[in-house]
Nucleic acid binder design. Sequence first.
DNA 1: TTTAGGG
DNA 2: CCCTAAA
Length: 654
Amino acid sequence: MCAFDLLATVAGKLLLEKQCTPSSSSTPSDEDQSAVAKEIEQKAMQDKNKQLKVETCDQGSCDRGFFVSDLVSQAHDQKCSLKPPSCQQADAHPGFASVITTSDCSEGFGDQKLVHGKPKNEMGTLASKVEVGPSGYMGYGNCKVEAETNKFMKDESHKTAKVQLGTRADGCSFEDPLVWDGKPPAVSSDSSAKAPLCGDHSPHISFPASQDYVNVVSRDDDENSSGCTHPNTTKRSFRPAPRIGDRRIRKILASKYWKVAPKLKDATLSNTDGDLKTVYHNRNSYYRSIRSERNYPIKKRRLFNCSSVPNYDRKIRSEGICVSPERCINGDVSALCAKMHEVTGASSSVAGSHTSFQSRDSHVKLRIKSFRVPELFIELPETATVGSLKRRVMEAVNAILGGGLRVGVLLQGKKVKDDNKTLLQTGISHDNQKDVLGFSLEPKTSQTPPPLCSGDSPFMLPSNAPQPLARYPPAPGVVHQGTCDAVPELQMANAVNFIESDHDSAPSPTDMSIDKSTKDSKALVTVPAMSVEALAVVPVHRKSKRSEIVQRRIRRPFSVAEVEALVQAVEKLGTGRWRDVKLRAFDNAKHRTYVDLKDKWKTLVHTARISPQQRRGEPVPQELLDRVLTAHAYWTQQQAKQQFKQQPETCLLL
DNA sequence: TTTAGGG
DNA sequence: CCCTAAA
């Protein structure tokens, strides 16, 4: 099974600028990779603009295209069936979602994967439902996607190689999305970057400076990093995707602490002072930081937009919501106006945000560049096909986006609840540089989205709103199919159901049909979207005192079949070889670690010793419990014997 | 990474 | 299930 933690950003439009020049250091160990890389590189070279764009067009007309980019997934465990190059372009649909995954698949290349989400028909619907950003993109004919990946940086302190992955969609050809060779494509400076690749689909919403909407940090062991020539490169934010196993992934997801450190690091980078401090003091903090980093890109963007990008972005769209860089830079206070309402009122339309500021007139202009899609957690069998993965992601995304979202407005990290207040009243119109306006997508659930802190500045990414990773246990037997207006919860559940559940194949002797009910079908985790962007360029120093939310692995009671398999394995292997037991009987159940098995055995032994009345949960056949006791006694004895054998020796030695 | 145990 | 010390 592979678990993917997906973080998606929906952007109205996305442009990625390549900033890294290909360094000579490329070290593609894999031929294929290098080939792909070259291809990409060439492609890149061809682009005078040197931009990477990720766009999703809605059926050709990009008016209301919506993009989902920046899906980063981390596959846990070994052998993920997904093969890098397996990205199929065939299905490329104008509207698409790209997913880049960093998997932890055991071997080399498999680590970086980019999967193109295959837009489903619903996409259209989805797109329409979700209006992102300023509409206005003039027709993009067929938008195809081209993706590039380049690793551009390496964090020496942690030996973390960073990979930046850009996806570009332009009206051109569809390139093989999967590229990963650690060879950064040539890059040009930003100024040129602006040029629209696709004719005039211009980047109204382009992000000049490094907008790494999609970037993936490679495993820690990546050494070959190439240098980036472009200064900005350094500023890029990364999304570390440490190589971690299933468990670790979970840890990440569930990390209790959203360390600030990593961010600080990035911040440092951003500062370009080259003063990189080792932020990751230890593994834990490192992993824990992952999540928080995810938000970084957005912040980065903002930063860049404000500071590094020239006039480029300054235009304010008439109908759109724009934010002018200068504003940010100057920190001027501007009066906000009615437009705001329009924006927020857009309700289900946008996601992700960037915002604003404004100015001269009493109008507040905002431009929302992207919304972040709630985090998704997807788990599926290793044997699942890439196509199914795509579907899963799509479904999950659809479930969320199509499930009814509402927009939340945050001001300085606080949620503005009163919809009737005017911007002025809310304080949005105040011209204080501290204004941090953020938008968030939230499920239309009653449950209040966790507080987000929008004020974090790129440099101080302390408070990352701990995006509560909610896991929705599958409602056994309840499958809400085709729920249209179901409440978010239901929809989520629905989405969950789409995810293939772990088919724990516990090799059981007798044909023990594993009852479906025991299967876990809760593989999807959705987090209320939250992404907040602060407009303020000035870092808002906030410390998140927010209690860290810990996400514990979901509880997955052992089924009788599993117990049977466990008992059988232990009978044969003994009680001290959990890894072997795991391999032997639970090799296919990725969610069962040897520690789990050991723990289960422990509880089984305990259970067997207590009276049936005291037992809880699914009753385990007495027969099995008897075997447990027998086996336990036997192996305990064996161990004792072992020790006994060694004891004498030691004594003799003494 | 595994094992072994306590929490 | 989690967390960790040890190995």
